[in-house]
Amino acid sequence: MPAAGALYRRAVLGALPGLGGGRRGPGLPAVEVAVGGVTVDRAHLADYDRVCGFRLTDRLPATFPHVMGFPLSLRLMTMPGFPIPLTGVVHIGNRITVHRPITADETLDLTTYAENLRPHDRGRQVDVVLVGSVAGEEVWRGVSTYLGRERKPSGGEARDRGGRPEAPDATARWRVEPRVGTRYARVSGDHNPIHTSLLGARLFGFRRPIAHGMWSKARCLAALESRLPDAYTVEVAFKVPVPLPSTVSFALLPDGGFALHDSRGRPHLAGLVR
């Protein structure tokens, strides 16, 4: 696996003037990044389960293969010519398909690639696909949508500026402590400073560090753990960031959906299991 720390250093250095931060390709690199024979570290899995609220079992949570393959996604997104810089990128959506349960004694082959570069009213967005296979059979697929913000709107998908619907009744309320940012960074390898540093967050326009979107998704799935079937797709859209610390309201909806809101009813996350 690539070393995540080195890739973050490359991204930060590349963003500095005169060091290549402006070399961005007009399209996507025609490349896949793959690593075979990836095993599960059970201590790592247990730490991840604790941080996200899952039960300690040998079955991998739906979001754990995303963590296992995250260094591959970093390697892809820090390649020369990748159209969206890693520094300041915003994770705006994630879709995971679990084809069957995966256990900790299985060995995964992981492959990642990028597709569907398209405009957004705040810049450009791209899908980074990660596929997990066992003995040649696809068992897991994740699609993360990332937004690269640009100063001049390029047209395309627009944000919904209509009235906000009333927040659903809360099923549970959770206190999200400041340490969630650093604890999740440690178990996920995602050390983006907007999640772990007050200075880093302010450099990118946030008053305080914010929780990782994939922590929010994992925490919601942990609350649904006993209801999830063996095979399913779960899709989320990340809305207003979760500042650290804060109190959030989780709501389970009758149509298979779920949501996370702040104390004023603003949506942090909207999800659906099917």
Rank of each mutant, 00 (worst) to 15 (best):
M1H: 11
P2F: 05
Y8K: 08
Y8D: 03
R9C: 08
A11C: 08
A11V: 11
A11R: 06
G18R: 04
G18A: 02
G21T: 09
R23D: 09
R24S: 04
R24Y: 00
G27W: 00
L28I: 12
E32T: 15
A34D: 02
V35N: 04
G36H: 09
T39Y: 00
V40P: 10
D41I: 06
L45P: 11
Y48R: 03
Y48E: 01
D49T: 12
R50S: 12
R50V: 11
G53L: 00
G53P: 07
L56A: 14
D58R: 15
T63E: 02
T63Q: 01
F64R: 15
F64A: 12
H66M: 05
V67H: 01
F70Q: 04
S73Q: 15
L74K: 09
L74T: 10
R75K: 14
M77L: 06
M77R: 13
M79L: 15
G81S: 07
G81I: 08
I84D: 00
V90S: 08
H91S: 00
H91A: 01
I92N: 00
G93W: 00
G93T: 02
R95G: 09
R95I: 05
R95E: 13
T97N: 06
R100K: 07
A104I: 02
A104Y: 01
L110A: 13
T112M: 02
Y113K: 14
N116M: 01
L117M: 08
L117A: 10
L117T: 13
R118C: 03
H120L: 04
R124E: 11
R124Y: 05
V126M: 08
V126H: 07
V128T: 12
V129L: 03
V129E: 04
V129S: 07
L130A: 09
G132S: 09
G132K: 09
V134P: 10
A135Q: 10
V139Q: 08
V143Q: 04
Y146F: 14
R149V: 13
E150V: 11
K152M: 03
G156D: 10
G156F: 05
G156P: 15
A158V: 15
A158H: 13
D160F: 12
G163F: 00
A167I: 13
D169A: 15
D169C: 05
T171C: 04
T171L: 01
A172D: 14
W174A: 15
W174K: 13
V176A: 03
E177V: 10
R179C: 01
T182V: 13
Y184F: 14
R186M: 02
R186Y: 01
V187W: 00
H191G: 11
P193S: 04
H195I: 11
G200Y: 02
R202K: 15
L203F: 11
F206W: 10
R207W: 04
P209T: 05
I210Y: 07
H212A: 03
G213P: 12
K217I: 05
C220T: 13
A222L: 05
S226N: 06
R227L: 11
R227P: 11
V234Q: 04
V234L: 02
A237W: 03
F238T: 12
K239R: 15
V240W: 01
V242S: 00
V242E: 00
P243F: 00
L244W: 03
S246K: 06
S246H: 07
F250H: 14
F250R: 11
F250L: 13
A251Y: 09
L253M: 14
P254Q: 10
H261F: 10
R264M: 04
G265D: 06
G265P: 14
H268Y: 07
G271S: 10
R274C: 04
R274D: 07
